[in-house]
Design a protein around this nucleic acid. Structure first.
Lengths: 339, 339
DNA sequence: CTGTTAGCGCATTCAC
DNA sequence: GTGAATGCGCTAACAG
C-alpha cells in the first residue's frame, strides 16, 4: 500500500495542493505549514510517485541514447560522460544498444513514436533524412555525437583536420611513405550503419599528402572491419609490400594496436623502423605509449547532454553544432624514418 | 496535440473501453469492431502513451542496472547481455554507473525508494545487509551478478574453483613457483566497494597449492588496484625477485596483459620462460592467444534478466542462485617450465 | 497563502 | 460484447 500525497496531506492537516507546493518548493507557502508538511513527509517516508509526476507534467523525464557496440572503448567512454551528466539532472537514462541493422531500424523507428523519452542522443549512427524527419515530426529533440545531420544538433570533431594533423606530423618527421589503415570507407548516405569518421580522416590524410606533394599510393590504404585482429592482418599486408611504408596512420587506437602487434611479429622495431600513430587516445593508448590524436570522448558525452537539456527547456531552439578540439599527443611510437 | 485513446474511440465510433480492449488484445471483442478500431489506430498513427499505461498498471515497466566502471571490459560485456535481453521484453533499461563511493551510496539508497524501476540488477557491487533490507522492504526484486547475498537471487561463477582450475593447470604443466597477481584482497563485508572475486580466486589458488603440497610463498602474491599499468608494475616486481616465479596466475585478463607486457620489457619469453594465465576470456584474450579461465559474461547478463523477469511475474518467488560454468581455455601463453 | 477541482491517458470495474 | 464511470497520484489553475 504505497503512501500518496493524500496521506501526507491528512497527516499534516492540509490540502494536497499545499503538499504539492512544498514538494515543488513553491515560494507561496507559509514557513510553519511548510515545516508541518515536511515533518509528515519524513514520518511517512513519503516519496512522490514519478510515474504520476510524469503523467501530470506530460513529460517522461527520461533521455534515450542509441549507440552501437558497447564493446568499442571510445563509445563506452562517451556513454560514461553521458551517464555522469544525466545523473546530475532529473532525467533517467535509457540505453538502446544497436548491434544489427535490424535493431537499428527498430530503435530508429520505434523510439520516436513510442513517447518513452523526452530527448534522444545518438552516437556514431548517421540518421537518414527520413529518420530525422520522423524525429522532428514527433518533436523529439535529438543530439548527434560524432555523426552529422544538418537539421540536428551535434557534437563533433573535425575529422578531416584530425587526419591532416596526424599525417602532417608524420611528414614533419621526414616520412614520405605513409600508409592509412582504417575501416571500410563507405559513403555515409549509402550505408547508415557505418562510421563516417574514417572517411573524413582519410580525406585529411589525402590533403596532407597533396600539400606536401607526396603522391598517394593506393595500396598504402588498407581497410577492413574494425577490430584489433583485422587491423593486424592489414598491417601485415602493408609491411609485406615490396616497398613498405615507414609510417602507419591508423584510424583508431585499437587499429593502431593491431599495427604495433604486426610490427612486433615481423620483428620490425617501433619507432626506429616504423612509426605508428593512432586516433582517439583511449585509456590503453597512454599505457602503450602510443602517439595519437586525442579527441575528448568523455567530454563529448557531457556536452551532448548539455545541449539536449537546453533543447528540452527551449523546444524552439535552433540546432547547433559544438566542435571539440583535437590534440596531437606525441608519445613513443613515432620517430623520424631511418635512411 | 498528441492523439489519445479518445480520438481513436471517436473515429471508430466506439467507447474507449473497447479501444483499450483491442490494445491489450482482450478476447471479448467482436472481430468486426476490432478491425474498425485497428483501422482507426492506423489512420491516426496512434501510439498509447506509456506513462499513462504505467500509471494505470501501477508499474514503471523499467529495469535498473547498477554497475561500476563502464570501462572494465568484463562489466561492459555483461551489460551487453542485459541490454539484449531487456530489449526483447516490454521493459526499458535504465543505467546507473557507479564510479565513486558517494555515487554508490546515492544509488543504493535512492533507487529503491524512488519507484523509478520495477526491478534491479546489480553487477559486482556487494550490497550490505542494510541495503538488502531496504530492497526487500520496498518490495524491489533484485538480482545480483557476480556478487553475493543470501537473501537475493544471483548469477555467479565458482571463483574458488576457478582459481583452483587455473593453478592446477599450471601445476600439471610442472610449475611449482606460481605467483598470483590480483586486486587488493578485501573482506567483502568490510569494503562494499571492492570486487570479491579476487579473494575467492586466491582461495582456490591456495587450495591447489596445498593439494599439491607446494608451500605458499607470500611474496608470490602481489596485489594492487585493478589496471593494466598496475599489473605491469606488480609483474615487474615478481620477475625481479631473487627466485622469480615460473608462472603467473592473474585475476583478470587485463592484469594478465600487464604481466605479458612486463615479461616483454624484461626480455623474458612467454611461454618458454614464463607461463601466464588470465581470467574472464574477454575479447582481446583470444587475440593475444592468452590461456585463461573463461566465464560466460554475456550469458550472465542474459540469465540475470531472465530471473528478474520471473520474479517480476511472481513476486513471492524465493531467491535462487544460478551457477555458470567455468572453462579452462588453453592457448599459447602457458607451457611446462624450463629446467 | 491555502483548499478544491479539473485534467493527464489509460485500464478496469460495472451495468446494459 | 460494449459504453460509461471510476481511479491511478500528481500538477496546476481556480477560487477563496
Amino acid at each position: 500500500m504505497p503512501i500518496t500525497i493524500y496521506d501526507v496531506a491528512k497527516k499534516a492537516g492540509v490540502g494536497i495542493g499545499t503538499v504539492s507546493r512544498v514538494l515543488n518548493d513553491s515560494p507561496k507557502v507559509r514557513i510553519t505549514t511548510r515545516n508541518r508538511v515536511m515533518a509528515a513527509i519524513q514520518e511517512l517516508h513519503y516519496h512522490p510517485n514519478p510515474m504520476a509526476q510524469r503523467m501530470a507534467y506530460g513529460k517522461t523525464l527520461a533521455i534515450g541514447v542509441i549507440t552501437r557496440f558497447f564493446t568499442r572503448p571510445s563509445f563506452v567512454e562517451r556513454l560514461r560522460g553521458i551517464e555522469a551528466s544525466v545523473a546530475e539532472s532529473e532525467y533517467d537514462l535509457i540505453v538502446y544498444n544497436v548491434e544489427t541493422l535490424a535493431k537499428r531500424e527498430r530503435y530508429f523507428r520505434t523510439v520516436p513514436m513510442s513517447h518513452r523519452v523526452d530527448g534522444l542522443i545518438i552516437i556514431c549512427l548517421p540518421p537518414t533524412d527520413a529518420d530525422v524527419e520522423r524525429f522532428i515530426e514527433e518533436k523529439l529533440p535529438t543530439v548527434l555525437v560524432d555523426t552529422y545531420h544538418p537539421n540536428l544538433s551535434r557534437v563533433v570533431v573535425d575529422d578531416v583536420s584530425g587526419g591532416r594533423m596526424a599525417t602532417q606530423y608524420l611528414i614533419s618527421l621526414g616520412h614520405r611513405k605513409i600508409a592509412y589503415l582504417s575501416d571500410p570507407l563507405n559513403d555515409p548516405l549509402a550505408s547508415p550503419f557505418r562510421f563516417t569518421s574514417s572517411l573524413y580522416r582519410y580525406q585529411g590524410y589525402r590533403q596532407a599528402l597533396e600539400e606536401a606533394e607526396i603522391p598517394f599510393v593506393p595500396r598504402y590504404h588498407q581497410a577492413a572491419e574494425h577490430s584489433l585482429y583485422q587491423a593486424k592482418v592489414l598491417a601485415h599486408r602493408l609491411l609485406s609490400l615490396p616497398d613498405p611504408p615507414t609510417a602507419i596512420f591508423a584510424a583508431s587506437d585499437t587499429q593502431a594496436m593491431g599495427a604495433l602487434e604486426a610490427a612486433r611479429e615481423k620483428g620490425i622495431r617501433v619507432p626506429e623502423e616504423l612509426s605508428v600513430i593512432g586516433f582517439d587516445d583511449i585509456e590503453i593508448a597512454a599505457y602503450l605509449r602510443l602517439t595519437t590524436i586525442r579527441q575528448p570522448l568523455y567530454e563529448s558525452g557531457l556536452r551532448s547532454v548539455e545541449i539536449l537539456l537546453s533543447h528540452l527547456d527551449r523546444p524552439q531552439e535552433q540546432p547547433r553544432q559544438v566542435n571539440l578540439a583535437l590534440e596531437l599527443v606525441i608519445r613513443d611510437t613515432t620517430a623520424p624514418p631511418r635512411h
